[in-house]
């Protein structure tokens, strides 16, 4: 088990290095002179020369990459060409907001997904089952930006229950949290249902029923524990996707997180900022996947890791 942990963590290194190379090349692949982009239109030739040297553009590409990576690892990802503030500072300001939104939506997704999935599986082929699965299908197919606008229209514009946009107390998180979590809830509901149905067909469940255990006990004490193992994987994956999905939700609700910052930065061609955000979001996703993998092994003792 321990060797597996170490191996799994070591396997991350090439992926993370690859991600950093991809993000580094981003700025170099963009047409135009990076120094000119960083300096702005009114820069003199001397300014450009200075910036070129500062960014290391006079060196070879691998050298530039190593310098860039070294700086990034020390928390220096350059300055935003828009605000002139350090990229890490700007991201640091916005990241807590995105984490908060993601935490709310994964909670919404897990609660709705599990309740719907368990209800559907235990009442298989009933109207409730069909209804839940149709709702889940619609949840997967609905564009989140449209869902967000519709929720805003009903609950903010017409009913005035929640504010339309911005960040503040918990009420600001309800509509964005639900918008972002709806798709994940649908997927969790589907996986929970099919996984629980599979487990309910097993012999030991039949034994539990045969020896006269109450249905509730069978489902919650025997079946659910095993059925939840695949659900954990999906929840972990969805958690990572939510961090990316936040880009859209934050734009809809004018919520000041990194996702909206990313979209704005692309529009302003603020590439150091784009690089920084992509690097942070991708690394987060990779690390979350690692945690899920390790958790999976811990939850399911049937999985043996060869040495």
């Amino acid at each position: 088990m321990f060797t597996y942990f170490v191996r799994r963590i070591l396997a991350l290194i090439p992926t993370l290095l690859g991600v950093s190379i991809a993000v580094f090349l981003l700025l170099r692949l963009v047409p135009g002179d990076p120094a000119r982009m960083a300096a702005g239109l009114d820069a003199t030739e001397a300014d450009l020369e200075f910036i070129r040297r500062d960014l290391g553009l006079d060196k070879s590409l691998p050298e530039q990459y190593l310098t860039w990576l070294n700086r990034a690892l020390h928390g220096d990802m350059g300055r935003s060409t828009r605000t002139r503030n350090p990229v890490t500072y700007e991201i640091g300001l916005r990241l807590p907001a995105t984490w908060q939104l993601t935490a709310v939506s994964i909670t919404v997704a897990v609660v709705i997904g599990l309740v719907t999935g368990i209800t559907a599986a235990t009442r298989r082929n009933s109207l409730l089952d069909y209804g839940s699965m149709v709702a889940a299908l619609l949840g997967i197919c609905t564009p989140s930006f449209w869902l967000g606008l519709m929720l805003m229209l009903i609950f903010a514009v017409q009913l005035h229950w929640f504010p339309t946009s911005g960040r503040g107390d918990w009420r600001h998180l309800v509509l964005p949290g639900f918008t972002l979590g709806a798709g994940a809830a649908a997927i969790i509901a589907r996986v929970t249902r099919s996984s629980l149905l599979e487990v309910l067909n097993q012999d030991y469940i039949r034994t539990a029923v045969a020896k006269g255990l109450h249905e509730r006990a069978v489902i919650y004490r025997h079946a659910l524990k095993n059925a939840l193992i695949p659900v954990v994987t999906v929840v972990g994956l969805e958690f990572g996707y939510l961090l990316a999905g936040a880009v859209i939700t934050e734009t809809v609700f004018a919520y000041p997180g990194v996702g909206r910052l990313l979209v704005d930065s692309i529009s302003y061609r603020d590439f150091p900022m784009v690089q920084g955000i992509l690097l942070i979001l991708a690394s987060q996703f990779v690390l979350i996947n690692l945690v899920v993998d390790l958790l999976y092994g811990w939850l399911d003792p049937r999985i043996h890791y060869g040495n």
């Binding site: 991600v19 990316a244 979209v263 784009v274 992509l278 979001l281 996703f285």
Partner: peptide
């Protein structure tokens, strides 16, 4: 693996950025 490290829409956004 590297491509999949950019979850969901993020990969498409990164390409558009370039």
């Amino acid at each position: 693996d590297i491509q999949l490290a950019f979850p969901g829409l993020l990969l498409a956004i990164a390409i558009i950025a370039v």
